[in-house]
């Protein structure tokens, strides 16, 4: 009787692991299945929108199908990779499902009005037809953004430290910061375009201004909030003023400074696009505006995809820098 029970329990266990395995495999093959149906849908259902298809979407789907099958086979061989892929697979499948639905409601059923809502084929085709221009615009935007961001962040660190450390600086600069700082940098566009010789310089100024405010505020707050005991320790160990500022105040305020840097990054994106839409004759913001002027909304969407990749990449980069510099916080604070 007892041994019988044990058997059934182990049977259940085996059944359970088998079940987990099969669900894993089903998850793993899901993207390929969805992509297959997306291809079938795209090729078999007749188009209702009166547009020429370019075949790019079809090619992308075909490539994705081959890739997803290849990845599936690899994940069957490599257990570790498989586990990671099976976890991600449902999401990947959902992305292709979204593409298929998008294709159906636009190209196939024409439920959404043109030219505002083109199908995936039209949008993907932009990367082929306009790829070079998009790349050039992206590089332009990155250059402008980084110049402005780095300039604004350095100035923000400088003024923030000054205000946080020196009472007289706080007296004179503090009010300026509190009153002028909250104005969105984009509101300065008309003045900046007149005050600077080129629109490029004007945009750098605007982006720098957008970054400067949050970085300054968070740096000075961070320094204000440093425990006094740290300064006392440093003083009794023989540290001078310079040491207290650079080796105690700034490192101690670093977590707060990074909040400012992240906030600044958000405002810098907004300012970049606004500046490019209004004054600068290059960059992704300009490209969006220009495409809209020609009612080429497929280009707008393509550009949005580029922006999404670019901005999320930059945020990831800043997170990387943060993790490097604030490694000591590991296990202390969760971000």
């Amino acid at each position: 009787m007892a041994s019988n029970n044990r058997e059934t329990i182990s049977d259940i266990k085996i059944n359970k692991t088998n079940k987990a395995k099969t669900t894993g495999i089903i998850k793993g093959i899901l993207p390929a299945v969805i992509i297959f149906f997306a291809i079938a849908e795209h090729l078999l259902i007749p188009n209702k929108q009166v547009v020429s298809t370019t075949g790019v979407y079809n090619k992308v789907l075909m490539a994705s199908l081959i890739l997803s099958i290849a990845v599936f086979i690899i994940s069957l061989i490599n257990k570790k990779f498989g586990k990671a892929y099976f976890y991600k697979a449902p999401f990947i499948a959902a992305v292709f499902l979204f593409l298929a639905i998008w294709d159906v409601v636009t190209l196939k059923l024409s439920l959404l009005p043109l030219p505002f809502f083109p199908g995936p084929d039209k949008v993907l085709h932009v990367f082929v037809s306009d790829g070079a221009i998009l790349l050039k615009c992206a590089l332009y935007s990155v250059r402008l953004l980084l110049c402005g961001y780095l300039l604004g962040a350095s100035f923000g660190l400088f003024t923030g430290t000054l205000i946080g450390w020196n009472q007289r600086a706080d007296y004179w600069i503090g009010p300026l910061l509190r009153i002028i700082g909250p104005i969105p940098a984009t509101a300065w566009i008309p003045i900046a375009l007149v005050a600077f010789p080129t629109s490029f310089l004007a945009s750098i100024f605007l982006i720098a201004l957008a970054v400067w405010f949050p970085v300054t505020v968070m740096t000075s707050t961070g320094i204000h909030n440093v425990q006094n005991s740290y300064f006392e320790v440093a003083k009794t160990l023989g540290g001078n003023q310079k040491f207290l500022v650079f080796k105690v105040a700034i490192p101690a305020a670093m977590p707060s400074i990074f909040i400012g840097l992240f906030m600044g990054m958000g405002t810098s994106f907004a300012t970049l696009i606004a500046a490019e839409m209004l004054g600068v004759k290059a960059g992704l913001g300009w490209y969006i505006n220009w495409s809209q002027g020609w009612a080429e909304y497929n280009k707008v969407y393509a550009c949005l995809i580029v922006l999404a990749l670019m901005f999320s990449g930059l945020i990831k980069l800043l997170f990387f820098v943060k993790d490097k510099l604030l490694g000591w916080q590991k296990g202390l604070i969760k971000w």
Partner: peptide, 11 residues
Amino acid sequence: LVFQQANLFPW
């Protein structure tokens, strides 16, 4: 001076 709290620099 050694303080009551260790006051080590956490960074």
